[in-house]
Structures are given as structure tokens and as C-alpha cells.
């Protein structure tokens, strides 16, 4: 699915990723943990194609395609989805209109037929119910006036509508109450399939009780410094990251 080889990336003058390697096979769930400022969000931004992050060396292959050569919208249509750590508010742009435009743009790129508004509405109504979100959020401008938790749920809702092949969730669990955490985990688990992969960035082992990862990695100072199974997350919860400096 995804093969990241020896990536170096910087933003502004700051070197952030310093030789990062990661391979994600179809159907796998990888959790990425690590201290603040380690470069976790930067990794997500590199994959999604954020303009201000500059990749200076290395390669990213996604299902045989050179991901770094693609525009952000092309990556999306190829199946990359980033649930943002800080989803932006876009005043004046209606959530429904935005999502339908996005879905149809992706379909068009893939040579698929566009979805008419009636089918889209039906599909979206169901998914919003699954996410236990109030459906008036659909009529509001994207993320405007949403609570922190509503913004995170909106990201997962969008993921459900767009059905990506590779979903990167950047601290989607932060700021969620216990019920919302379960809902979000359910949203992810429902999408889990042999041909879909997840990279889940989190600070808390708790999320991994609900979404069982195949691998857990520690990202520190721009590199993966340790990998293991879900027990690594439990270990980190107990020990913290002090051992990194020894």
C-alpha cells in the first residue's frame, strides 16, 4: 500500500523528518506515537501534500505511484485521506456542498460516474447517523462554530463518505469525550478491510483499546526509533519517553 523510504523533510528553516522509513501493507493498522514536536503531523502533511512542507530527500510509493509527484487533490483521488489534527474553519462554504464537490471531483479523476444529489443525500444521512452527529452540522459552513469534538467527528465522517484506501488520523482522539471516542473508533473499525490501511497518530493508548493496531511505532526527532506490537503502546503509557534520551 504505502512505502516510505528515507524521507527528509523541512518546514521553514527547520529540519523535521530525518530519514524516516515506514511500510504499510494493505489492511494494516499502524499506530504512531511519540513526543510533542517529533514530526508526527509533518509526516501526515508530507503524505497529504501540504505546500509548506518541503521533502528534501527520500521517496513515497503508494500502490506503484510516486506519491510525492502528485498534487494534493490527486493524492486524495488516489485514496489518501488525512484527518487533520487542527481542522480548519471555512466560512461561507456549506459542509454538504463541499463534501459532494470533493467526492465527485475524486470520482471524476478516477473515471467514475458522478453521484447525483439524491443518492448523495441518502448516503450522507446514513453516515451522519452512524457517526451520531447532529445533521444540522451538514448545513453549516465547514467546521465553523463546531466544538473541538465536533470537528474531529466531522473529519471521521468525511473519511466515511470519501472511503479512502489510506487514512491518516492525526490525533483524532484528542479532545473527544468517552462516548465520542467509541463512535470514532467504530467509524474506523467499520471501514477496516483487507484493502484499506490506517496510520493512526495518537498520544494515548486508550484509543488502541478500541482500534487494535497491527504495529505501534515511536517517532522521535524525525525518525521511527522503535517499532513493536500493541504492547509497545502499553509500555509507553507506563514509561513515557524519558528512555529516548538515554
Amino acid at each position: 500500500m504505502l512505502n516510505i523510504k528515507d524521507i527528509f523533510a523541512k518546514a521553514g528553516d527547520k529540519d523535521i523528518l530525518k530519514g524516516l522509513n515506514l511500510e504499510v501493507k494493505p489492511g494494516e493498522v499502524h499506530a504512531i506515537m511519540g513526543p510533542n514536536g517529533a514530526g508526527k503531523s509533518t509526516l501526515g502533511n508530507v503524505l497529504a501534500g501540504m505546500p509548506h512542507v518541503e521533502v528534501t530527500a527520500g521517496s513515497v510509493d503508494m500502490q506503484g505511484k510516486d506519491l510525492l509527484a502528485l498534487e494534493p487533490e490527486e493524492r486524495a483521488a488516489e485514496g489518501v485521506f488525512l484527518a487533520f489534527q487542527y481542522p480548519v474553519e471555512i466560512p461561507g462554504v456549506n459542509n454538504m456542498y463541499f463534501l459532494r464537490t470533493a467526492l465527485n471531483a475524486q470520482r471524476k479523476y478516477r473515471g467514475e460516474e458522478e453521484m447525483d444529489s439524491a443518492s448523495f443525500l441518502r448516503m450522507v444521512k446514513q453516515k451522519i447517523k452512524d457517526m451520531n452527529m447532529r445533521d444540522d452540522l451538514l448545513k453549516r459552513p465547514v467546521n465553523v462554530g463546531f466544538s473541538g469534538g465536533e470537528k474531529k467527528r466531522n473529519e471521521v465522517f468525511q473519511m466515511g463518505v470519501l472511503e479512502p484506501k489510506l487514512a491518516i488520523l492525526d490525533e483524532t482522539d484528542s479532545g473527544l469525550d468517552i462516548d465520542a471516542l467509541k463512535i470514532v473508533a467504530d467509524g474506523v473499525n467499520q471501514l477496516r478491510s483487507p484493502d484499506r490501511s490506517f496510520v493512526i497518530i495518537t498520544h494515548y493508548q486508550r484509543l488502541l483499546d478500541y482500534i487494535e493496531p497491527d504495529f505501534v511505532h515511536v517517532l522521535a526527532d524525525g525518525k521511527i526509533v522503535r517499532s513493536g506490537d500493541k504492547n509497545l503502546a502499553l509500555e509507553l503509557e507506563e514509561q513515557g519517553y524519558g528512555w529516548l534520551n538515554q
Binding site: G49, A76, L82, I90, G92, Q106
Partner: peptide, 20 residues
């Protein structure tokens, strides 16, 4: 970037933002 990351090309993303 948010709009683009969901699959909307740069030109259309700009148009959407200008219209709103």
C-alpha cells in the same frame, strides 16, 4: 489545502472560496 486534500483541485478550491 484543506479543500485540495479532499480532492478538489486548486482552481476550483479558489473559486469556491471566492464565491463564499
Amino acid at each position: 489545502f484543506y479543500l485540495q486534500s479532499r480532492g478538489i483541485d486548486a482552481k476550483q478550491a479558489k473559486d469556491i472560496m471566492i464565491e463564499s
